[in-house]
Design a protein around this nucleic acid. Structure first.
Lengths: 243, 243
DNA sequence: CAGGTGGACTAACATTGGTTATTTCCGCCT
DNA sequence: AGGCGGAAATAACCAATGTTAGTCCACCTG
């Protein structure tokens, strides 16, 4: 059984939204069955799969994506360490998209049989797992709303989102974080061509809002960036509520 | 208490995905508390609200939308009769977007207190409610994936989706259905200008895939339309599975 | 019946973003 | 040190979509 500290980041994310009892923490930890590693570029699950377990990424970045008929890849979400990448397959059963590793990843696996049993005994914890899938949904909605705006808004919005989501883990230090994405992948996520991503990055660079060297993003002017992106973190639901 | 037949369409949607026991049907019906009407153009819930009940639309079409800073409205989803429009607020608590009526609507309201009690006593029904919110999520993802493609693909994809979703109600007759949206609203949903929606409609009309007169859409060539839209209904999860 | 309104449609022009091809840069391997 | 390969950057040109500014028509209302 995986060491329990591996799921600490996920538990912290839950506890930002509501309080957990000791019994709930233990019940959840007891659902973890195994671990594995995936190299950058590998698929964790594929469209069409019927997973029998859900995966929590403890290290590395992943994307939800689909390859379209004309050979293009469209990325629909980015997951950071401490996120479940396919918790929804517990309920939906059938994968309507794939999940791929952006960097080398370490994951902990939770068999659906155990999670289903959990939903019978822990209604409150069930609502919190439901919550986490709804936050994913909320992020999708936000991306949709952002898709209407221009490329610079969209790109800076993505930086804002990742900054806030990583800030609740220990992966932002001194306004800097690692983001293992190429400009091509960024384009796939924003629905833009790689060339236009490059153009847009140049433009944003000239506005001194952030830097992006190698894989390191550094926020220079958070308020300016937020304004540029029209970023309002409400949709991340980073608020503790009795649920 | 609202008459139980009002929620029949919703129950049918659940039963397309899994079997319900009589007790579950009754427990759900018992959660309905009140009804009300909204005229076209009214908001059912607004961004920032903290609803104490969730609404099931029994008649009429609604949208999830947000007004952006520059005065534009972006529509993120369309709901048809028999859909819960804000079931997610049971868990998320805080509305990060608004829901507006596209046409005159009749809704049945389910207090969160009763639904929360339901989650304590009916884990299987809880998973089915969870499922319905995940299908919304899946639709969001699909719209994101579609956003990368061109305008004609996107527009025909929307027609396909609504056709399939309405077909499971009794609102499609003889390949025809009513769609109470203007070209402006269509543009808000697709992230296109109204002018471009018009251009795109003309183009699709010339391909004889469907007609759209007044508010009536009529499918002329379903296979052709599906191909044009690269439409694959998998993401609607219209499959019965033990969940 | 006249006037007003909202929605569909059109045209001309401006802008954004896509495509293709080439070059530069930089880390890494031998 | 040399060379290879992936990613970033650049340039020129092209296609898709947005903007503005209308017209036209059906329907409603006074």
């Amino acid at each position: 059984m995986p060491e329990t500290h591996l799921i600490d980041t996920f538990l912290r994310k839950l506890e930002l939204r509501d309080t957990l009892t000791v019994a709930e923490r233990e019940a959840l930890a007891a659902c973890a069955e195994s671990e594995s590693d995936y190299p950058a570029g590998a698929d964790l699950v594929r469209e069409g799969d019927r997973p029998l377990e859900s995966m929590l990424v403890t290290r590395g970045f992943t994307t939800r994506y689909r390859d379209s008929a004309d050979g293009n890849r469209q990325i629909g979400a980015i997951h950071v360490p401490g996120d479940f990448v396919d918790l929804q397959s517990l309920i939906l059963k059938h994968m309507d998209h794939s999940v791929g590793a952006l960097s080398d990843c370490h994951v902990v696996k939770f068999p659906h049989s155990r999670l289903t049993a959990l939903t019978r005994e822990h209604p409150h914890l069930t609502r919190l797992l439901w919550l986490m899938t709804l936050i994913d949904s909320s992020i999708h909605r936000e991306w949709l709303f952002a898709a209407g705006r221009g490329a610079p808004e969209q790109l800076s919005h993505l930086i804002c989102e990742l900054y806030v989501r990583l800030a609740v883990t220990d992966l932002v230090v001194d306004q800097r974080f690692n983001l293992p994405m190429t400009q091509v992948e960024l384009g796939e996520a924003l629905g833009l061509s790689a060339v236009h991503v490059n153009r847009t990055l140049q433009q944003l660079r000239s506005e001194d809002l952030f830097t992006w060297q190698g894989q390191e993003v550094r926020i220079l002017d958070w308020d300016g960036l937020r304004r540029r992106a029209q970023f309002d973190p409400t949709y991340l639901h980073l608020v503790s509520e009795p649920r």
